[in-house]
């Protein structure tokens, strides 16, 4: 490796993302971390000042109470667990549905690929909330699906679909699908077509070539796309709130509740920090293993 001095242009090029990361990631993260060790007070804002002086005595008001609570109360642990399970199910759903979609787009004639990508992303031009409400309309007891089944005589009572873990799963998979399809498509599309031609030339049937060439080469992209779905899915709180029930209380919802309803800012901050660490460690390990954005580390 050769080292060289950075020019002024280099420095300023690096400075922009550096300032961005510092101002919008590092500083807020530190603020949240600091908030998590503050002491709750019945005031506005609902926390004691960090440092106070009374009668010439300086006192620091800090406590690990929020973290003790997180460890002690089973509610938080089960909410973490249900968030992880839900995110994992969402991830699996996105992989199972998204991979064939990405593969189909990548194998379509070049001229039509952009159209298919456009179509795959098209629903996301409408607001996320509108689409969630549209799902509520579709799957509620008096919705078109139940109405159709009832009028066909296939069922006698509406199937309760809304407000269930399955409904949360359905809407989450639907919402997060493009986050998997787009990177997966990018990876599949970049695989040289000649590799499959060579496999066929050597006597591999399509299924064998898929298993031995396409899949192993697409695997890093698949894992990257899956992580891209999993991480935001863990913190998701709107969808479980809209279409879930009491059994789908997840850590994102708890955080919201602690902050806005219980006004326990330190506890909400501690949940945020704990979630951050919980996700940070495995994704760091993955990043070390994979190259940037799903390219195979050679």
């Amino acid at each position: 490796m050769t080292t060289r001095r950075l020019s002024a242009v280099d420095r300023s090029t690096i400075a922009i993302p550096l300032i961005w990361l510092l101002a919008l990631l590092a500083v807020p993260l530190m603020a949240v971390a600091l908030l998590s060790v503050r002491v709750v007070a019945d005031a506005i804002p609902p926390i004691e000042p960090l440092v106070s002086s009374a009668g010439g005595h300086w006192a620091v008001h800090a406590s690990m109470r929020a973290y003790h609570l997180l460890g002690a109360d089973v509610l938080y642990r089960s909410a973490f667990l249900s968030a992880l399970v839900n995110a994992a199910c969402t991830m699996i759903g996105c992989v199972v549905i998204g991979f064939p979609i990405a593969l189909a787009i990548a194998q379509a004639p070049v001229a039509r690929r952009n159209l298919y990508v456009f179509l795959a992303v098209l629903p996301f031009w409408t607001s996320f909330l509108l689409r969630a409400y549209a799902w509520i309309g579709l799957i509620r007891d008096s919705g078109p699906i139940n109405s159709l089944l009832l009028s066909l005589g296939l069922i006698h009572d509406p199937i309760p679909m809304l407000f269930s873990p399955a409904a949360v799963w359905l809407v989450m998979v639907y919402s997060y699908l493009p986050f998997f399809v787009l990177p997966m498509y990018a990876v599949l599309e970049s695989l040289p077509a000649e590799l499959l031609a060579a496999a066929a030339d050597l006597g591999a049937r399509p299924a064998y070539a898929f298993r031995t060439v396409t899949l192993p080469l697409a695997l890093p992209g698949l894992i990257s796309g899956a992580v891209l779905v999993f991480i935001p899915a863990v913190g998701e709180y709107v969808i479980p709130e809209l279409v879930g029930n009491s059994s789908t209380i997840m850590i994102g919802g708890i955080l919201w509740e602690e902050f806005f309803q219980n006004r326990d800012w330190p506890l909400a901050a501690a949940i945020a920090i704990a979630t951050f660490l919980l996700l940070m460690i495995p994704s760091y390990v993955l990043r070390r293993w994979l190259g940037p954005l799903g390219t195979v580390k050679q």
Partner: peptide, 11 residues
Amino acid sequence: MMFQSYALFPH
């Protein structure tokens, strides 16, 4: 057939 790019399997 030996391909122009050789088309070796990189993995």
